[in-house]
Simulated scan of single mutants.
Amino acid sequence: MSSRLSRDFEEGFTSLPEEVALRSLLPKMSTVVYRAPSMEWEPQNIVHFFGEENLLTSPIGLNADAGVAWCVVERRTDVRWGDLKTIEEVAYQLFVLYFDRVHRLLYINNSANDGVFEDLADAVLNPGAERFTGSTVYRVMADIERLVPTNVGVLDARDQFRRFSMHVGSDVAASFSQAEAGTKSQTNISGGGYRDGEHVSISASLKGRIWSHATATSLKHWQDWCDSIGEKLLDDTISIDKVIGQFILPERLTGRPEGVLLAVEWPWQLHTLQAEHVRLSYQEQIHEAVYTDLIPDTASTTGPFRFTVKTGSWEVTYEAAVERGRLHYRCTGDDDIKVVAHDRNIPSAIG
Rank of each mutant, 00 (worst) to 15 (best):
V68F: 11
T332Y: 07
H221P: 07
H342T: 03
L55P: 04
A21W: 06
L294D: 02
A321N: 09
A36V: 13
E118L: 13
Y318F: 12
G255T: 09
V32M: 02
E40T: 11
R80S: 13
E323C: 02
P296K: 08
V102W: 00
I46V: 15
S58L: 06
W211F: 04
T272F: 00
H103E: 08
V33L: 08
P17H: 11
I46R: 02
D171Q: 15
L270C: 07
P347Y: 14
T298L: 04
P257C: 05
P43T: 07
Q178V: 00
R139G: 07
V73C: 09
T301M: 09
R7W: 10
S15W: 08
I46A: 01
Y318K: 09
G12H: 00
G12V: 05
T215P: 06
R326E: 14
A66M: 13
D65L: 09
G82Y: 02
K28L: 06
Y291V: 05
R279K: 14
K28D: 14
V316A: 08
K28G: 10
D119T: 07
W266S: 01
E284T: 11
L155I: 15
I60S: 01
D114K: 04
Y291L: 08
A214V: 01
A64R: 14
T217L: 08
D293H: 12
R162F: 10
T292E: 00
M29F: 14
V339R: 09
F307P: 02
E251Y: 00
S30Q: 04
D224F: 05
D293R: 12
N109V: 02
Y107M: 09
S2I: 14
A275T: 12
V154N: 02
G208Y: 13
T187L: 14
Q269G: 11
I210Q: 04
G134V: 05
E42D: 12
P17Q: 09
N188A: 13
F117I: 00
A129T: 12
L206F: 12
C226Q: 06
A341S: 05
I229H: 06
D156S: 10
S239D: 06
V148R: 08
L106Y: 06
R326Y: 10
G333A: 11
L56D: 04
T311C: 07
S239W: 05
H287C: 00
S239P: 03
V90M: 12
W266N: 03
D65S: 08
D343C: 06
P257V: 05
T317F: 00
G182L: 08
G197N: 07
G192F: 04
Q186S: 13
G191Q: 08
V33S: 04
E315N: 05
E251H: 12
S175W: 02
D83T: 05
K85Y: 15
A181W: 04
E19T: 15
Y34P: 07
G51I: 01
T57I: 08
A179T: 01
D83W: 11
Q246S: 15
V322N: 15
S3D: 14
A123G: 00
I108W: 04
E258W: 01
S24I: 03
E18V: 10
A299C: 03
E88H: 15
T311Y: 07
P37M: 01
S3Q: 13
V243C: 09
E265F: 10
A112L: 05
D8E: 04
D336Y: 09
D100W: 11
V116H: 09
H213Q: 15
F95Q: 06
A142N: 14
A64L: 12
N110C: 11
I108R: 10
P296H: 02
I238T: 13
I248L: 13
A320P: 08
D236R: 11
R158N: 14
Y282M: 01
